[in-house]
Design a protein around this nucleic acid. Structure first.
Lengths: 192, 192, 192, 192
DNA sequence: TATGAATGAGGCTTCATTCAT
DNA sequence: AATGAATGAAGCCTCATTCAT
């Protein structure tokens, strides 16, 4: 019998650990040798688990795709406090996920550049995900108008964008705090 | 000095026209041969005007950095109408610049990845730029609290982010329109 | 010595069955994994019986070397009919061995290419083998001049060559049939 | 203007000079680096003229295909002497071409191994070429039966085969000389 | 014994850069 | 100034071989 390893676990591990590398360096700048070295394996081993760099990156992309929604559902269920409490909790959750969201953005941008004309399919998928988020936030915050949920998510997207190109932590956005208050007002003014 | 003008014009031209290529493909995916071919010159000519690929990209990055502020000052000066009018004009301006802002983001991300640890300097620069924008928008919209300006810019950043990873035009964000109304209310409620 | 027999049998079996693979694909194109897969064992097992790819190929080459002469002696002994009958039997025997002879040629060519300058030793061996064949055919056909035997073998070599580069079966060579007649004439004209 | 070279001449030169290397080492054993070194250029230059190793080998194969027939037509035209003279001239021509024919065989064998199922097409081509040779030799030697021509060519094929696997020069085949006599007899016996 | 996961040298190929013209 | 042929380091990947189980 050969060296005993859990093949699937190893595959997942490689993907999880290489995701950050792809995010930090980008697909082209990151070499297979660099990945192997960073993960403490040989290039041959990489190829033992994935047929090539493209396939590994594809797996990374897909794994990153899945991370977001699952986490959100968990975090926002449970005890439902007042408007202010719900808004606080939402922003706190977003802040806790900012690194993952940045990684998701970086990898998606790279992935899109590698796609020729089939970008549209990915865009549809992104759109659908956004709709789910809007519906979720609308329900969670008990908003009467989904546009408010869209605005909240838009602002969070903006915070990620600033992080991406300005290295700014999500918490350092005065506009986000202001928006929190506006949302609470909007909920309360309807709550008569 | 007969040829100097041509030389400088050529340099600018090469930078301006290659910026979109760097944005679309990314630094590593884009080859010098591809640039040369797209610009209708030989690789030798490229090297005649820039000492290497890094230098060309650096020039592209710097040229893209400058574009934004200059344009903003122009567009928002002049006739000052009412709150609603000013907000409309601001969003219209942002929408007209979305492609440039996307290009700026793409190139900045690539540029940041090429930087090892000296990212901090660029972050400082970005922070300063943001402060200028906040001040400018605060004044232009005649806001009493800069946090409103920050929120507006944050939402616009969010729209760029969505464009980047979802292919969504800025106009297709319900949250942005809603924000316009909230801002007008904020201005008017203070204007008594 | 309980396992020795199995071990040797296994070694022979691996060589015999991999010979065709080496012939069909060539040394470099054929991988150890491909051999292992085709033979239904693991690469580890291959290395258990042979220290490496070179050694396996060497064994294959040697096994193929031996095949020819042994078969010939058998087939052509026994009942001695008239000149025509003997010639027929010789050609029939050659035709029955054409696949093995093609394999021998293919493997020898590969083997020669793997030899640097020590080809000469192999050439000496080949020359000696040819002399044996000439003597054998001369005796078998009861020829007065070994040049006739050489011509017969030369023509058979030619048929193998045509098979190699033209995919032509030995039976499809008019010249070979004609030669049969010429040989019979030569025998008979001397048999008065 | 760039370094001035005759692109087509360079291409031909690379093919011509690498043919012998492919013949001696075989496609897989021969590396692009080895070719480049042997030809005194860099690998980059090789790729400047041919898109890859396959394409270079394909070009080599095609160039080798063309060599034979052209040479034959030339050599055998002109002054027509008696039967013995014609036969001598034919064998002398064959002997002069033995190296080229060996190269042709080696490259064809390699090429065939690289072909999956489209071998048949190449076999058809080889068959057609053989027919042309038979017709040519029949006419040149003024034979009444093409089977004699086939036998002559078959014996020459055999000599090439022996060269291939035994390192034997064409001149060292007693059978070939004997055949010459038989052919002359065949011609003369009909010349009454 | 047998297995196949792991290794890393080396193969094919790309591409930033140089330089003769 | 402009061209593109030439270079060679470095990238992706293959595969002979080793070794833990």
């Amino acid at each position: 019998m050969p060296k005993i390893v859990d093949h699937d676990a190893m595959r997942s591990d490689l993907v999880t650990r290489s995701a950050a590398l792809f995010g930090a360096h980008g697909f082209r700048r990151l070499t297979m040798r660099a990945i192997a070295k960073e993960l403490g394996v040989s290039t041959g081993t990489l190829y033992h688990y994935y047929p090539g760099k493209d396939a590994l990156f594809q797996a990374v992309f897909e794994s990153v795709l899945k991370l977001d929604l699952a986490a959100a559902a968990d975090a926002l269920s449970g005890a439902q406090d007042d408007a202010q409490g719900r808004v606080n909790r939402l922003f706190a959750f977003a802040a806790s996920r900012q690194e993952a969201m940045e990684l998701y953005a970086l990898i998606t941008i790279d992935y899109l550049r590698s796609l020729g004309d089939e970008k549209e399919r990915l865009f549809q998928l992104t759109l659908a995900t956004r709709q789910r988020y809007i519906a979720g936030v609308t329900a969670y915050l008990q908003l009467h108008d989904p546009a408010y949920a869209d605005l909240v998510i838009l602002a969070i997207n903006g915070a990620i964008h600033r992080r991406l190109i300005g290295g700014i932590a999500m918490e350092a956005n005065p506009g986000l705090e202001l928006l929190g208050g506006l949302i609470v007002d909007a909920i309360d003014s309807r709550a008569d």
